[in-house]
């Protein structure tokens, strides 16, 4: 167990290190830099722009800048934002918290709906309810996330039932606790709905396929023959047996917690990493972009790592294989 765990952990660190180098390289290779827009200000002399570039070490070699960034990473700063003139880590953390509030809720909801819906559909393969779910998920699959989010925003404007974006009302601080929760729930409703609707088709289809495959297995027929009730059969025997692909998918869901909602956040003005990173990319706020990529990579790697551990726990074949090595 420990060897398997350490090997996976080693892979994870190597991956993060590799991603950090690539992120650094690609963001540096992108044309333009943060101070270029100042060149368009007729009141600022080119010498001032050059001095600012030098102040932020943009005129130094790439290796020097990478070393300096790694040093700041060790000190928990993750580099320095040119735009905010402050360390990147606190800027990212506060926005990542908002993103996680959105995505964790949406992921829990999506899995909470997808598991029973997928099992229900698998139990009725080829029948009308299964077809209806297939058509529904196919329809959701073809609707782009952007169209979905815009449609929901139109609904908000037309009906006035929901706020048109943002995370809290202007009066939020003056509200009672109950009123605060209600306000937050209202602001969360539409972005979560958009995220759940966009994630649901894939999850439902995977659960359905995995469970349907297990339901036809001989051990299930034997269990049925022993008179085990249908519900117990489905949730106690079929679902764990179908768990392997679902655990991998769950790992990806965790990996996408930070990066999966960026577009929805931008469209719905959610103050998470989405609008923040988009602006950083467009303005070439180099270290914010690298920090964002690194944050997402850590989540992806953690998700995969967790999935590996869950698989190790759930599947005796993996334990045997890794023990044999």
């Amino acid at each position: 167990m420990m060897r398997y765990f350490l090997r996976r952990l080693g892979h994870a660190f190597l991956l993060i290190f590799g991603v950090s180098i690539l992120a650094f390289l690609f963001t540096t290779l992108a044309p333009g830099n943060y101070f270029d827009e100042m060149r368009l200000n007729p009141q600022i002399a080119p010498e001032t722009v050059a001095a600012l570039r030098a102040q932020y070490q943009l005129d130094r070699p790439l290796v020097v800048r990478y070393a300096s960034w790694v040093n700041s990473l060790i000190h928990g700063e993750m580099g320095f934002s040119f735009a905010y003139n402050s360390p990147v880590a606190p800027l990212l953390l506060v926005r990542a918290r908002n993103t996680l509030l959105l995505t964790v809720t949406a992921t829990v909801l999506a899995w909470g709906i997808a598991l029973p819906a997928g099992v229900w559909s698998a139990e009725r393969v080829g029948r009308l309810p299964d077809r209806l779910i297939s058509w529904g998920t196919a329809a959701l699959l073809v609707i782009p996330d952007l169209a979905l989010a815009l449609g929901l925003l139109v609904l908000a404007v037309r009906t006035g039932w929901f706020p048109t974006g943002g995370m809290a009302s202007v009066d939020f601080e003056d509200f009672s606790l109950l009123h605060k929760l209600r306000d937050l729930a209202l602001h969360l409703a539409l972005p979560i709905l958009a995220l759940v609707l966009s994630a649901l088709p894939l999850l439902v289809r995977h659960v359905r396929a995995a469970v349907a495959e297990v339901l036809g297995a001989p051990f299930m027929l034997a269990a049925q023959g022993h008179g085990i009730p249908r519900r117990t059969l489905l949730y106690r025997y079929a679902l764990p047996a179908a768990a392997n692909p679902l655990i991998s998918l769950f790992g990806f869901s965790i990996g996408a917690l930070l990066s999966g909602s960026l577009l929805i956040e931008v469209v719905m003005s959610w103050p998470g990493l989405g609008p923040f990173l988009l602006e950083a990319i467009l303005s070439r706020d180099l270290y914010v972009v690298i920090g964002g990529v690194l944050f997402s990579t850590v989540f992806l790697v953690t998700g995969n790592f967790l999935a590996d551990m869950l698989l190790y726990w759930a599947d005796p074949r993996i334990r045997t294989k890794s023990g044999a090595r």
Binding site: A156, G160, P163, T164, G165, G166, V266, V267, S269, L278
Partner: peptide, 14 residues
Amino acid sequence: FVPNADAQVLKFQS
């Protein structure tokens, strides 16, 4: 803070 011009319009409109 809103991320784009359209969001600005929606906020004003509502």
